[in-house]
Amino acid sequence: MKNSRTICLLIFIGFCQVALLHAQTIRLSFIPKYGDKAMLLSDSAFKANDSTDLEIAELKFYVSNMQLLKNGEVVFTEGNSFHLLDAKQAQTLQLSMDTKQPITFDELKFDLGIDSSSNVSGAMGGDLDPTKGMYWTWQSGYINFKLEGRSKHCETRNKEYQFHLGGYQSPNSCLQTLRFQVDNPNRIALILNVKAILDKLDLAKTNHIMSPCTEAVMLSQMVANAFKVSKN
């Protein structure tokens, strides 16, 4: 009698676990930082460094094609996976994926930017709507990554720098695929360290990239390398 009770209890617990697993939601947050400083933007620019008058006024980018993998095999692919992240709008930095099926995974994979097929598919809606300010007008194509601000090193109008990185055609395709080892957590936090990008640039020389070109590809690779999984 006691045994059968235990068995029933175990079965019940098992069911609960399955049900819980069914409702698995993976939360992914992006944290823009400048070195160790948190970098949430508002209407006024983020002052990174008083000595160089370095400011960051705009940081927007697309992440797309989210996938979770286990031992190199894809176990989950997000549908309609296009997200525009804007450092001025905190809610856009929080993504959640409902896997529906219980899964275990050890790797997160996504694209920084918009794939070439979506770039030639005409007008699209949601985060891909051209009203979002991430679509070039004089030439077709999405801007994958936008970083703007000022630095005293820029001998430009208002000392501004502007990086609009995009381009979907070879040899200037800027799309970057990022992969991170993660240990099956329900929460993943990725840090984008803007300092790591700007430190590598000589803003006196490179301060405007506004079209698909070799420099845009190089800078896109630097941006991809500036993402890291948060250990906290």
């Binding site: 030639v120 051209p130 007008t137 194509g141």
Partner: peptide, 16 residues
């Protein structure tokens, strides 16, 4: 040939 799809053509004159 700057524009790759008719749907996004109008963006060019609108923003020029």
């Amino acid at each position: 040939g700057a524009v790759n799809h008719l749907d996004v053509q109008a963006l060019a004159p609108m923003s020029n």
